[in-house]
Design a binder for these strands. Structure first.
Lengths: 114, 114
DNA sequence: ATACTATATTCGAATGTTTGAATATTCCAA
DNA sequence: TTGGAATATTCAAACATTCGAATATAGTAT
């Protein structure tokens, strides 16, 4: 059980482990939005957004509600929003190192190392 | 910037998105441990633990301290521990659905669907 | 019925992650 | 300085994720 609990947590982190999906959750922090609105605000392919929404749905991080033609999405549990808020705090706290990490990831590093 | 911030967050979630790495962080919640102790308690291959530690190090989720022969690891920032604590709350709150999700993942589902 | 709009799914190529086996490094002790 | 213990790295195979293009479904209006 210990291990499958950890698999469960890992799967949720996995679902959060993509910039587009984080953007979706952050957009939904202000309340529910339709798939189309998410698509517009993110400026990405329709299919791509829909695929990311499918990931978030499959891990139950979001719930959806059909209204006629459209499908509205919302974050299922505010705990997830809290998790992202903690991440923001973490980022701010470690801003300097975070920026160094980011530039290394870019391959545009200006950071000294010995 | 908005987007690279999200890439940063996504990378941290990615680092947490593995049961073994979650186990490592949870073991470290009680204080620092050597790589060897982690290996023993997790009962996994030496190389495997070391690789997972390398992932956690590269995203700066843990810090390490060499002491003679050994390397001791610790969680860098308690915020990460808080994140995992939130996940525990989330899990407890959604225990029923979580169990269903887990059994689906196992392929050993006993859950009814229509 | 037909056409239109909104959303979802499937497919395959590209890319990234995970693993154990083998090997390397580092430190200490004899 | 040789040997052993602790840890890290490299490699390649297996597996998973991501993307856009194409296609499917479902609702609404004509």
């Amino acid at each position: 059980m210990q291990d499958s609990l950890r698999r469960f947590k890992a799967d949720i982190f996995q679902a959060l482990a993509h910039p587009t999906r984080i953007a979706i959750i952050e957009l939904l922090e202000g309340g529910e939005l339709s798939a189309g609105e998410l698509m517009e605000r993110l400026g990405m392919e329709q299919a791509n957004i829909s695929q990311h929404l499918a990931v978030l749905r499959s891990k139950q991080l979001v719930v959806n509600r059909k209204a006629g033609n459209q499908v509205f999405y919302a974050v299922r549990d505010p705990i997830i929003i809290k998790v992202l808020a903690l991440m923001r705090r973490y980022f701010q706290k470690h801003l300097k190192e975070a920026l160094e990490l980011l530039s290394e990831m870019d391959g545009s590093s200006v950071v000294q190392r010995q």
